[in-house]
Design a protein around this nucleic acid. Sequence first.
DNA 1: CGCATTGATGGGAGCGCTCCCATAGTTTTG
DNA 2: CAAAACTATGGGAGCGCTCCCATCAATGCG
Lengths: 353, 353
Amino acid sequence: MPAARGGDAGRSGPTLEQVAARAGVGRGTASRVINGSPRVSERTRAAVQAAVAELGYVPNRAARALAAGSMDAVALVVPEQENRLFAEPYFSEILRGVSTQLAETDMQLLLTLLHDERSRERFTQYAAAHRVDGVLMVSVHGDDPLPDLLREVGMPAVISGRRSHAEHVPYVDSDNFLGAQLAVEHLIGRGRRQVATITGPLDMYGARCRLDGYHEALRAAGRQGARPGERLVVEGDFTEEGGHRAMCALLEREPGVDAVFCASDVMAAGARLALREAGREVPGDVALVGFDDSAVARHMDPPLTTVRQPIEEMGRAMVRMLLELMSHERDRAGAEQGPYLVLPTELVRRRSS
Amino acid sequence: MPAARGGDAGRSGPTLEQVAARAGVGRGTASRVINGSPRVSERTRAAVQAAVAELGYVPNRAARALAAGSMDAVALVVPEQENRLFAEPYFSEILRGVSTQLAETDMQLLLTLLHDERSRERFTQYAAAHRVDGVLMVSVHGDDPLPDLLREVGMPAVISGRRSHAEHVPYVDSDNFLGAQLAVEHLIGRGRRQVATITGPLDMYGARCRLDGYHEALRAAGRQGARPGERLVVEGDFTEEGGHRAMCALLEREPGVDAVFCASDVMAAGARLALREAGREVPGDVALVGFDDSAVARHMDPPLTTVRQPIEEMGRAMVRMLLELMSHERDRAGAEQGPYLVLPTELVRRRSS
DNA sequence: CGCATTGATGGGAGCGCTCCCATAGTTTTG
DNA sequence: CAAAACTATGGGAGCGCTCCCATCAATGCG
């Protein structure tokens, strides 16, 4: 046994060379088999595969990356100010989808939380130096420069959720507009007359879409004359406290309100609390609908009717889209528009409406 | 400009060689500066650092890994059957802690979800081949062979939560025993006479500790004579339905129960539902305390008194411990016991008790 | 004052792999 | 039947870095 010198850290299993020797072929041929090249005879392929199995060979990623110039890894980037993201199933489900889909290739998933400016800068450099092959970004704010930066350095990237109507970075989004519309139609269908909404921060495109869906549903029901935009719309911030505040404001401004569509479950929880404090029954006096179908929705009393997004599927779709981008990267260097995907949302009826 | 051939994917920034040339030094010296070796003169160091800044040099990880035999990456492994893990803050907070602490080194965080046998096997091989430098495992079951496997192949690993009293793999845990004891003391202090508990699955060590804490609190209060173990202890399974079932059983068996310590918030939610169905007020008729301080606890009605664990800190501690293990790996190859860390828990009083 | 010691430096070797070119063996074609 | 065209294969070059050894200069010591 060789004396353990400093740098030998890896008794890292057999090398390609050893596999090749064992199979009685050359290194190049062994490599071809490992990488599924068709230009290998059946016999040889079998021999190499046997050797791989016997030796328990696992390719050395670093060596492969170095030689091939690709890293076989994609980064999932999460802006960490998004604390709330974490508490909700959103992130976890995206993660599950991403991970599942990625498992079918053998790419690595690198998780990067952007805590502060420093980590941000570091990641930017890292990406610019092409130390990953692609980037997935979750919950990007409208003014985040990162997606465009990545674009400039030719790093394939997919974001979850558009940042604006004119989003030019490839994205996967859910149909916020239609989801909101469904929710409000549902409330109208239940005979509610004064349907209000607590929106998300209106500088976020998704929040805006939900508001548009709300308006559209009212318009379609012939209620646009009521000018709901004025009295019945309150801007929230996706937090529980925000929902509470918004609901209080709403009750004061329009005591006759009998239904509220909240742009997130968490805000609905806040609103529900405000209603309780005001002595209003749910759904008796006021019907409530949320958005997200997060855990909160199921645990509220009464359980919250809400709009579900196919989040896990969004994660999977993001990966598929990214892989697609990565494989074509060369010949679309100058393309000005990426692929887009919008997945459907669905109303989940519970007792709050 | 060289014609873009197939494999050149990386126009990956400047190399060490170029930095060295720019700074007018040799490659070795440049490397020394980058890696903070002390054996470099101040002048030279400054020159190299200037060159790095000007060129925007970012070391090529693959090359570094290949040459140094270490991968500069640790894997965070999550057994995916743990669906519930994801819905709770637990995982997210661990993740934040891990990520924060890791950001101070420049290791990469590799996230691995173990969906099925195939991914499990793949990861095992991967680790055995030392394709990561260390492994963090979250929520390991008592019968999971992975930790011991890693140990055998000399892969440093830290798990969150002991698997048994005699855990021999390095771990970071929270003080389940004391947390439970606090909770039950609190209930006793509030004048409750018939304090029951709904436990977790008793094949999980953490659940067992919480039960022990419960017993200890009763014993300390001089109530061991009541043989609480028989009538007032029901085994749950950490799910909401389980909590509901357990509470129903409890009510039937011991209608006079006036306090319940649930070994998880989610079970407390189930129990709360059962109590509502049975027409019991919380905390009027029955006081309720949970464990975890998850989002559910805050959203219950009334908000749930519960036991908080310093989860983010646990994540950070896991990383510190792992780095420590990694740095000593060589000289402790034969050590039979790893370091352990148990962090304190804390009672969060809310209206349910 | 000459030789040993220390500190800073340059650069060779090689990590394990992929790419690609040269080679040899085999088949098709004129 | 020879030349051309494939096919399967071996192995060199080199990816960008770290490790380490040889080198050279500047000290220290007897």
